[in-house]
Nucleic acid binder design. Structure first.
Lengths: 106, 106
DNA sequence: CGGTTATTTGGTTATATTACCAAATAACAA
DNA sequence: TTGTTATTTGGTAATATAACCAAATAACCG
């Protein structure tokens, strides 16, 4: 692969890798409804505080979310709205996959 | 996390994981211009035949591409056009990240 | 200040991913 | 049939990820 292409695909892969985890997808979808603090995700997911914090750090490092410390709490919010549309395309794929699977039994 | 949410986010994660690799992103982008055989990707990427084949199998398993064997060759093509739009959103993020980085030096 | 809450950081272990090589399969050509 | 090309499959070693625990940091409260 040419170096230019490799660099660009690599940059895209970094962002996709940040999204490619069950918990982080859940977080991004929740954040499309507005900012949330770390503690809210801890309550909802049942994961350790440190685990949640690390997931959010990955999203932040990729440029998908931003953080805002107010008092003792850190609030995270979506930085890039188009992510939400993107996840719509993923749902299209899931539906299409399900239809194919069920048509195998006809 | 509730089981329903976990299952749905998990299904989405599977598809995103399939996309989350430099080589596979490159492949998907190339395929948006039309079908290609495995051998073409081998030539372009410089990777081993087996490696390329496995990457394509991951995309196929996720429902992103389909394959079509004709003669000795196997042609892969995009199954879901919206993937291309999605990658546009990723580029938005990359640009925004670059702008932030450069503004640090002002 | 001392205690509590919210969050991050560092360390460790388990699991997943990736790339290569070698071998198996499949279609075609001589 | 034998050889060649295209592709997949299986195995292995290196690297990356993810979850938890413990400890560090930071802000607030009494």
């Amino acid at each position: 692969m040419k170096e230019v292409n490799a660099a660009l695909s690599g940059a895209k892969a970094k962002i996709l890798k940040a999204l490619a985890h069950q918990t982080r997808i859940y977080m991004v979808e929740k954040l499309s409804g507005g900012e949330k603090c770390v503690c809210e995700f801890v309550g909802e997911t049942g994961l350790d505080f440190s685990t949640v914090s690390k997931h959010l750090a990955i999203l932040k490092d990729a440029g998908i979310v931003r953080d805002d410390k107010r008092g003792q709490k850190v609030f995270y919010s979506l930085k890039v709205p188009c992510i939400t549309n993107f996840l719509g395309c993923i749902e299209t794929i899931i539906k299409s996959n399900l239809e194919e699977q069920s048509s195998m039994f006809k």
